[in-house]
Nucleic acid binder design. Structure first.
Length: 447
DNA sequence: GATGGCCTAATTAGGACTTCCGGTGT
DNA sequence: CACACCGGAAGTCCTAATTAGGCCAT
């Protein structure tokens, strides 16, 4: 049975060989992700109602112990935690971090099945139809046969506005392109202790509202990621404004630099102000703290490439590395996202609600911290089983997870086949339809 | 030689910004 | 005055789909 709090190595189980982890000098082959996700459970045919009650949002994170045990999960988290806190040999700067190693760095280790990392935002602001996502995957089994034929295929239309049909294919990142979308980038920043809440922070995680504490710094990071040295907040802001039309972002009126995601993955890592990093006010505003702002915007523009990096390194790494507990706090207790409220209950004045939302399937769940884990994972080799054996346990967990997922899928399929069509619940359909692609690598299920 | 499958490179279409701009509000 | 914010318009970049051509096996 899939447990909500279990860590998942994004499909990587089929493609990683732990021995290769060490062999690969730069990029380990595992994505560690926690999936506290009822939607996932529904994919696997599990009754997530058992885990989440609308009356008690807290129950979202209450999972019944599985055979692997709650302790194991926690141990795994601790292991990842430890990894995150290991010193990085390369001392990645933010610049490096977001411009180079972000997602493209996974190229060597994550292969096609990792593509469509999907999470559900169901229930957050509104449910989104999954038919497209479904059709994408459900057609897969037939695809190989047709691909042999040379005939003209119906042209696949990419996501277009205003429908927020953003398909995040991670294999894009394997091609060296910087195709991390801006909204993804912002989400990543919001999950990155190095910049959150320092440069960007949640003001109302519940509603997906965040503030660009240091708009110029964020813009510069974005520009570095996109290899646009001239990027500024004005330009980035234009891109953000395009998101209004597409229903990805809303502007929180009356508050400068405050935006709201229309939808969020439930397993976002919410870094709060108290998480260790000092918030840094935008130097354009009321504060006098452009001191430690390595990106002191007006002064360093001429030396963006060098000074930014250096200052960021010295500026960002030391304080964030250590929290009070000496660990990254992106663990379950912090990932408290109360049950979503209807949009009408938002306490923030928003623009006229867009008709559409971020397609729940397309939200990123690979956080920057997870990626740091990847980058540090090479150190796993040097870990003593007694010390960080949980890392390996996690790998095992993944294997069993896939097995369980496959078993669950079979169960769901058989169940749904036996049910009368009119009695099929929507949830049940969803589970049977999209469960497979999410957790079971197509390579194993389609062949 | 004809046919069909596979592979690769070139072309094309389209999405996601980026850049620039003029304007308004705080 | 500086800055945030808005949205139109044109352009760039990148990716995936399509197409054409070459190679090879039957």
């Amino acid at each position: 049975m899939l447990q909500q709090s279990e860590l998942i190595f994004d499909y990587a189980s089929d493609h990683i060989n732990m021995s290769q982890v060490g062999g690969h000098s730069e990029y380990p082959s595992v994505i560690v992700e926690q999936v506290p996700h009822p939607h996932l459970l529904s994919f696997s045919g599990l009754a997530c109602e058992q885990l989440q009650t609308e009356d008690d949002p807290q129950q979202l994170f209450e999972v019944e112990p599985c055979e692997s045990g709650e302790e194991e999960t926690m141990e795994t988290l601790v292991a990842a935690d430890s990894l995150l806190n290991m010193d990085c040999p390369d001392t990645l700067s933010l610049e490096q971090h977001y411009s180079q190693t972000f997602l493209p760095s996974l190229a060597d280790v994550i292969t096609t099945p990792v593509t469509q990392v999907t999470v559900s935002a169901g229930g957050i602001v509104g449910a989104v139809d999954q038919s497209q996502w479904h059709s994408l995957h459900m057609k897969k089994p037939a695809a190989p046969l047709q691909s042999r034929k040379r005939g003209r295929k119906p042209r696949h239309r990419r996501a277009e506005s205003p429908t927020p049909d953003i398909i995040v294919k991670k294999d894009k990142y394997n091609k060296g392109g910087n195709t991390l979308y801006l909204w993804q980038f912002l989400m990543e920043l919001l999950q990155d202790r190095q910049v959150c809440p320092r440069y960007i922070k949640w003001t109302n995680p519940d509603a997906g509202i965040f503030k660009l504490v240091n708009s110029k710094a964020v813009a510069r990071l974005w520009g570095k990621h996109k290899n646009k040295p001239d990027m500024n907040y004005e330009t980035m802001g234009r891109a953000l404004r395009y998101y209004y039309q597409r229903g990805i972002l809303n502007k929180v009126e009356g508050q400068r630099l405050v935006y709201q995601f229309s939808s969020l993955p439930k397993d976002m890592i919410y870094i709060t102000d108290g998480d260790g990093s000092k918030e840094e006010k935008d130097d354009d505003h009321d504060d006098n703290s452009d001191n430690d702002e390595g990106m002191s915007d007006d002064s360093d523009d001429s030396t963006v490439a060098s000074s930014d990096q250096s200052v960021e390194e010295e500026d960002l790494h030391p304080p964030q590395k250590k929290t009070s507990s000496g660990s990254i706090q992106a663990t379950a207790p912090q990932r408290t996202r109360p049950a979503p409220r209807p949009s009408g209950q938002r306490d923030t004045v928003l623009r006229p609600a867009s008709s559409s939302l971020i397609q729940e399937n397309h939200l990123p769940i690979v956080s920057a911290e997870m990626l740091r884990t990847l980058q540090n994972l090479q150190k796993v080799q040097s870990l003593q089983p007694g010390g960080h054996a949980s890392v390996f346990k996690t790998a095992e967990l993944l294997g069993s997870l896939c097995e369980r997922q496959a078993a669950a899928e079979v169960a769901v399929n058989s169940r749904s086949a036996s049910e009368a069509p009119d009695k099929k619940s929507h949830r049940g359909q969803k589970a049977s339809q999209v469960g497979t692609p999410l957790l079971v690598p197509p390579t194993s299920s389609d062949q």
